[in-house]
Design a protein around this nucleic acid. Sequence first.
RNA 1: GGUGAGGUGGGUGAGUGGCUGAAACCAAUAGUUUGCUAAACUGUCGUACGGGUUAAACUGUACCGGGGGUUCGAAUCCCCCCCUCACCGCCA
Length: 421
Amino acid sequence: MLSIQLFRTDKELLLEGLKKKNFKDLHLVDEIIALDEERRKVQAESDTLAATINVASKQVGMLMAQGKKEEADLQKATVAASKDAAKNFIQQLATIETDLQEKLLKLPNLPHSSVPAGKTPEDNEVVRQSKDTPNLTAQKLPHWELAAKYELIDFELGNKITGSGFPVYIGQGARLQRALISYFLDYNIAAGYKEYYPPYMVNEASAYGTGQLPDKEGQMYHATEDNFYLIPTAEVPVTNIYRDEIIKELPVMMTAYSPCFRREAGSYGKDVRGLNRVHQFDKVEIVQFSHPGKSYEALEQMVFHIEKLLQSLQLQYRILRLCGGDMSFTSALTYDFEVYSAAQERWLEVSSVSNFESFQTNRMKIRFKDENGKTQLVHSLNGSSLALPRIVACILENHQTPEGVKLPEVLIPYYRDSFIK
RNA sequence: GGUGAGGUGGGUGAGUGGCUGAAACCAAUAGUUUGCUAAACUGUCGUACGGGUUAAACUGUACCGGGGGUUCGAAUCCCCCCCUCACCGCCA
């Protein structure tokens, strides 16, 4: 949620940013400004009236104590007379505030100045790309065939137990999941992130906090009996750890593994074959809360952190700076990491790292005391390090050899073998 | 699921209708002092939204789990909801 101060002081900047994000309903800006002014006007009047009522009420008590009953009754009448007006003001205020809030929630975050203009993924900017491309000559099997060949993943079995998009990992496949999760967590912890093991279901307030509600409700599995939501990412429970808190020491660096549940309503076709898109998958997430002046530095660090991780897995990757039109609603700057699937001959997104600035924390009221002792919103950032399915897909495809899948060096201690065969 | 107790500021915890935005203690923080890896003393110390100011000072309103009600006036009384704890039941 954008801060209301922006509307009072930087209207031009606001409009410019919204345009870059291809936001259409620009008239909302003027409506919000008008509502804000009205709100302040009504509040001033309401507060004044409330003040006079409070004074009169206090006098009733004093007069009664002195035994001046008639004068007290007079004051009572004064208060009673103002009561309707006071109630009216309160209702007016509530209406205006609800309206204001609703409109404010419709506006996306403003893009950072480095965000390229554009509307579609084609307009994303390639920041860096690893040089070498995998040299697969003899065989070039896609991961779903490799998974069948080595009995790693049974997609059909998942259909029977639950439904499509719920793969069952078996034997070496299951072991690889465990190895990757442990490796990713250890890698993050070594960089200073604190490990959390959060709940996999959250309440409504948490889902609102990170912005899954109200607009992305259909993407989450909902346990209606208790009104809990299955988390679509560990970002939700982990970020909410600090909801309504004033943080004592920045930065806060957290990492968590969790399964992720996504309904992915409306996705079909060859793009979702195998592990490319599933309803339940595993991911290790990193989250940071940062001083507003240092959040972009933190973002670059996170990008570097993930880049090194991908290099250690010997996967070919590229880093994209998303254009205004392709960025998420809440983000100010997003870098996507894609790894090249040699067998499918396409890039697959494996991580997305974003700075949300104060867009999330404004809604969740996550703050700190600045140098002058004033309470300010912190900046929040997060990224995947990493999402497993597509990493698994690329490891299988890109490291396939006639002898089996040769695992990268760093995974061997975790997998306790060097080949999947 | 049943029964009981309870939800107050960073923490413990007092407060059962006006003198309470809230005692006391602890923590935190600033300073004073003592020549020692600390103690003593003093001050400051909730949040939000307004007004005000270059910025402060200052000032108004709201908030004692959430919502509603009674009353001139509510942390305090009433109703509904949520949550926590204890015991019982069930159980990985």
